[in-house]
Every structure is written in C-alpha cells, then in structure tokens.
C-alpha cells in the first residue's frame, strides 16, 4: 500500500508517462538511468545544466506547461465576473475591455443591504454546507463499508438501486419535496418549510448513491486482513470501522466531503423553496435575487457576491488536499 505518485517512484511513473502525455519521446531510458547523486555530482557543470533542464522539463516542466494552459482555460471566463465585480456599473457581457475600472465599492455595498443580508447568507451556506458534508460522509461511509465488507442478500441489487434512484429526472421532485416537508413540518415544526435543519435533512437524502459508490470502490482496496487482524485483537465491529478503516480511507472521505460541500453550496432549487426568510437563506438563493429581474439587475453587486462565494470552496479544497493526496500515507503509518 503505497501512494503511487507520492514517492520517488511516483516521479518515475510521471517520467514514464511523459512520452505518452506530453508527446516528447526524447526522454530515453538511458538518460534516466544515471540518477544517483554521485553520478550527477561527478559531471561537469554545463553538461549537468543542460541535462538537468531536460530532466526538469521531462520530470515536471511539462506539467507546469499544462498547468498554465489549464489555468487560463479554467479561470479565463471567470475574469469577466471579477472584472464586473470591480466596476460599479459593470455588466457581465457588455464589453471585452476587462478591468477598465477597479473599484471595491461593490464589495462594500454587498454588506450594507439590510434586505439582502449577504453576511448571513454566507454564514448560512457555510454551516449548511459543512453539516451536510459531514453527515453525507458519515452516512455514505457506513453504507459503503457494509457493501464492501459484508456479504448479504440483495447486496448487488441494493448497490444498483442506490444509483438508479438518483437517475429519476428531478423536473418534478421539487413539488413532492415541498409537499413532504410541509407535511413533516406539521408534526415537527423544527424541520418544516423555512428551517435550515429541514433543508439539511433533504440534502442528506442524497447522501448515498454516487457517494457510496465512490467510497465502495476505495474500501475494496483496503485489505480485509486489516479488519481481521483487529478482530483477533478483540476489537468490535464499530471499533474497527471508526478506529481503523475510516482512517485508511481518509482520501475518499475528503473527496466525498468536498463534493458534497460544493454541491450543497451551489444548490439552488430546493434551498429556494425551503428557505423563506432572508436571514436564513443561502448564498445561491440570495445571489440569484440580484439578477433575476431584468429591470432591476445588478450585475456588479452580484459578481462581487459570486467572487466572495467561491472563496470557501477553494479554501476547503486547499485544506482537504493534504488528506486527499497524502491521506494514505498518514493512514498506514509505516
């Protein structure tokens, strides 16, 4: 159990992959062979420079090239949003002159609208997103563990059903969800229409499905012998699950958590029918109000809001990266 790309061998793999992905067949095996420090030290400088640039490019340089290309591809359309957010009278599409004006008044105004409490939306989205993500990870991990480790009748069918249920066209789901939640709200007003806890419950309904699959695949790669060894030590099932297995699958927990957070953070349809009071609404619902009416559209404020809204997602990803990439290393302490 090693992490494929996190080792020296990982570099080699990347190297080996190089010809196929970057199309530079120049890195022949011969140039790769003398790799030890001594060998490198023993060479004259110019040779070493030339070699090491070639090596550097073969190793990581081309990756930067792709990185920069992707950076432009991914970020370029959003520059329009950033530009509009810095222009008090900005529109999204009117002009190709980006950053004509740079002015932060939109960002200031964003927090000064009592009817559109951006700060509250921001906080709500964070809380709802984090709670939902945590709940989703928990529920999906439980289910994935059962599917991966335990054998029971209906296992295959159950797995398939999980996925199929989510394929139903959701064109009408909203009506049903509304009726369901207003029914539940009559018994438990704490989770009825208009409550954030109710919204979280609805989101948790989607916790299984794809997430379970994602985790299931990962659980399968954790050797059963680990469980068995722990069992011999007298650990209970719950202890094995919470104490050992979950740690080993940290990368996928982080991925599922992130996906769930992003999904919740940008979810609009259900949130807009569930949350009625502006103080309880989420960013996606609130932001949309800035531009939904042709006659009172405010692209500038909206863009500022959208730019800030992207920060939590990015921050969370930045934070979770170490679990996603390095998770296995930490899990199976060597």
């Amino acid at each position: 159990m090693t992490n494929p790309f996190n080792t020296q061998q990982g570099a080699e793999i990347g190297d080996r992959l190089n010809p196929l992905v970057a199309g530079s067949g120049a890195t022949d095996r011969a140039s790769r062979a003398p790799r030890t420090v001594q060998t490198a030290d023993g060479r004259v400088l110019p040779t070493r420079r030339r070699r090491s640039f070639g090596r550097w490019f073969a190793d990581t340089g081309w990756r930067h090239l792709i990185g920069v290309v992707m950076l432009v591809f991914a970020a370029f359309p959003l520059l329009y949003v950033l530009s509009a957010s810095l222009n008090p009278t900005g529109t999204l599409v009117g002009s190709n002159q980006l950053f004509r004006v740079v002015d932060f008044s939109n960002y200031v105004e964003l927090f000064q609208r009592p009817q559109q409490p951006y700060a509250a939306w921001f906080l709500n989205s964070l809380v709802i997103g984090l709670v939902t993500a945590a709940g989703t990870v928990f529920l999906a991990a439980l289910a994935a563990y059962a599917f991966s480790r335990l054998r029971f009748t209906g296992r295959r069918v159950g797995l398939l059903t999980l996925l199929l249920v989510q394929m139903f066209p959701q064109l009408l789901g909203v009506v049903a969800i509304f009726l369901l939640m207003s029914g539940i709200g009559e018994i438990f007003p704490q989770v009825g229409i208009g409550t954030q806890s109710g919204l979280i419950l609805v989101y948790l309904g989607g916790a299984l499905g794809v997430n379970t699959y994602l985790m299931y695949g990962f659980f399968n790669t954790i050797p059963v012998s680990i469980d068995e060894a722990a069992k011999l030590d007298g650990a209970s099932h719950a202890q094995i699950f919470f104490g050992i297995v979950l740690r080993l699958v940290a990368p996928i927990l982080a991925v599922v958590g992130l996906l769930s957070f992003i999904g919740t953070f940008s979810e609009f349809v259900i949130a807009s029918i569930m949350l009625t009071d502006p103080q309880t609404q989420t960013l996606a619902v609130g932001l949309y109000q800035f531009v939904s009416q042709e006659t009172s559209r405010n692209w500038a404020i909206f863009s500022a809001g959208a730019v800030l809204a992207a920060i939590p997602v990015m921050a969370l990803f930045l934070y979770l990266q170490k679990y996603i990439i390095g998770g296995l290393t930490a899990g199976s302490v060597k």
């Binding site: 991914a74 970020a75 990015m314």
Partner: peptide, 13 residues
C-alpha cells in the same frame, strides 16, 4: 494549479 482548476466548479452554474 489544483485549486484554480476547481474554480469552474466553485461558481454557480
């Protein structure tokens, strides 16, 4: 790089 690439996913669709 990774974070920037998640950008399209972080903005409302």
């Amino acid at each position: 790089y990774r974070v920037i690439m998640v950008l399209p996913y972080a903005f409302p669709g």
